[in-house]
């Protein structure tokens, strides 16, 4: 909503605003009073040592925690422009997931054809016209930089693709539904360096289209792909800011220690 950075030329607009978010796995208090904006058409990286709650935080955005019993949210994640709290009990998690999509750590294509994988989100939304499906599938595969590699074999099983291709297929699957926010949970941790580079490049290109939040363990990756970075530790948000500032001149000592590798 408001410009925060003097370095950015265009005004940045908040796509979502996290306010006082607490999350509990039954009795375990996994996220503690998190306040943070997510800016529209920017890449926000979540970093921090293993177990600090990055995945937990990311999965709150699309209410994945609702799939398992005993999980509880407090606080708000407001989604703009309509200013709705996606965590409100009255909001259907399915509606939230229709707007906020997710790419997982391990590529998880469905055991269906390449085409059906990408088309699935559209089918869920009731789309069955062949022409529209074809169009959207091609568009999504192009956005995911996979079209050229698979256009001749759309009907082949998705499992025939390499790991990196599978992950780009999963990205295409998420993109086909025009999500407002795309969540990535360590999308390259199961991939080799070449596949990783292609996914990073893709994320870089995608931010013109969609707001991205990405969890990563890799400092270089966070520095390369993100505009904003949030450093988390033990369920708390320690520092949030423009990536360049976080990496060059962090305000908090803990952040600096983590980034320079003295810890974590």
């Amino acid at each position: 909503m408001v410009a925060v950075s003097a370095q950015e030329a265009a005004p940045v607009v908040a796509k979502a605003e996290v306010r006082g978010l607490n999350f509990y796995y039954s009795d375990f208090h996994a996220l503690k009073a998190i306040d943070m904006p997510v800016y529209e058409k920017k890449v926000t990286a979540l970093i921090g040592p293993s177990g600090c709650g990055k995945s937990t935080f990311l999965r709150s955005f699309n209410r994945m925690h609702d799939l398992y019993p005993g999980n509880r949210y407090e606080g708000e994640i407001r989604l703009f422009p309509d200013d709705v709290n996606v965590l409100a009990p009255g909001v259907d998690p399915i509606e939230v997931r229709m707007r906020i999509s997710m790419v997982f750590q391990k590529p998880n294509p469905f055991p269906k054809s390449i085409y059906e994988n990408v088309a699935y989100g559209l089918r869920v939304r009731g789309e069955s016209r062949r022409v529209t499906l074809n169009e959207k599938v091609e568009e999504a595969l192009r956005s995911a930089a996979l079209w050229e590699e698979v256009k001749e074999r759309l009907q082949e099983p998705a499992f025939n693709l390499s790991g990196g291709q599978q992950q780009r297929l999963c990205i295409a699957r998420a993109l086909a539904t025009d999500p407002e926010i795309l969540l990535f949970d360590e999308p390259t941790s199961a991939l080799d360096p070449i596949a990783t580079a292609s996914i990073e490049e893709l994320i870089h290109d995608l931010k013109n289209k969609v707001t991205i939040v990405i969890v990563t363990h890799n400092m270089q990756q966070a520095a390369r792909v993100s505009d904003y970075t949030a450093y988390m530790y033990l369920g708390e948000l320690i520092e949030f800011g423009v990536t360049d500032e976080i990496f060059i001149k962090p305000k908090k000592k803990e952040t600096e220690d983590y980034i320079t590798g003295r810890f974590g």
């Binding site: 799939l67 997982f104 469905f110």
Partner: peptide
């Protein structure tokens, strides 16, 4: 069936019945 498949389908906005019927 790996949990990742289910989560992948739910993350696209599927209802429980769609996950059952399609996956």
């Amino acid at each position: 069936i790996p949990q990742g498949i289910r989560e992948g389908a739910y993350a696209l906005g599927s209802t429980q019945w769609q996950v059952c019927k399609d996956h």
